[in-house]
Design a protein around this nucleic acid. Structure first.
Lengths: 109, 109
DNA sequence: ACAGCTATTCAGTGTTACTATGTACTGGTA
DNA sequence: TACCAGTACATAGTAACACTGAATAGCTGT
């Protein structure tokens, strides 16, 4: 989609991934494919993997190595309690921003 | 509000400022004060001035120096045609993101 | 042996917002 | 007069994050 989305994704992409993981556990390649399906065509694989490592190091997710039938072993991530809490914070922040932008969009001010 | 908002503002703050300027022209100090009122308490003045210079250099706004009764001269910014176009692009990008996040928030997936 | 899909990693780059500070003009007050 | 608060703008250095591009590795089918 271009540079505009790239900048806008900063901060939100992490929330998106946490939200995905809040439904069920998943691995990087799967998440990337899912995002592409949903229209995030420009998100690079490398970006997702880097993000996953980041949230792992912050202790927001648990990781399990699972062998794959189709290739090298997968790193399956699942949201833990701390991650759940972080996700809730994310939704609060997002709502705050979304509300204000909604007002601005509606000619408000 | 914290680090989460800081990251999320990347990419959106520019759109917010353009949206403000789409209503009427304004200068930096005024914009900062307005944002603070609206709850963006953590936005530093320096951030707004840097952003204004950026969008000026990209040709999205026109600038006029206006003397002030209360201090040094103001740099009054107003959105030009190119800026208006950029703002519309911004709203498209924002809507794209907001829709998908809305779906994710509603337990969807 | 090789191509193609699956799956992960990493070094280097660009953009953006924050921190902290400095400059400058005006009006009020001790 | 000297000082301070409010108004108004600017900037150097830092941190965080997504992207680019490439490399590595396992499995299947021809």
């Amino acid at each position: 989609m271009g540079k505009q989305v790239t900048e806008m994704l900063k901060g939100t992409l992490e929330g998106i991934v946490l939200a995905i993981l809040s439904g069920r556990s998943a691995y990087g390649y799967e998440i990337t494919a899912w995002l592409r399906e949903k229209g995030f065509t420009d998100i690079a694989e490398g970006t997702i993997y880097a993000l996953l490592i980041r949230i792992e190091q912050r202790g927001l997710v648990d990781v399990e190595r699972v062998p794959s039938e189709k290739g090298p072993p997968r790193k399956v991530y699942s949201l833990n309690a701390q991650g759940q809490e972080h996700l809730e914070e994310f939704w609060k922040t997002w709502s705050f921003l979304a509300e204000r932008l909604e007002q601005l969009h509606q000619g408000g001010r």
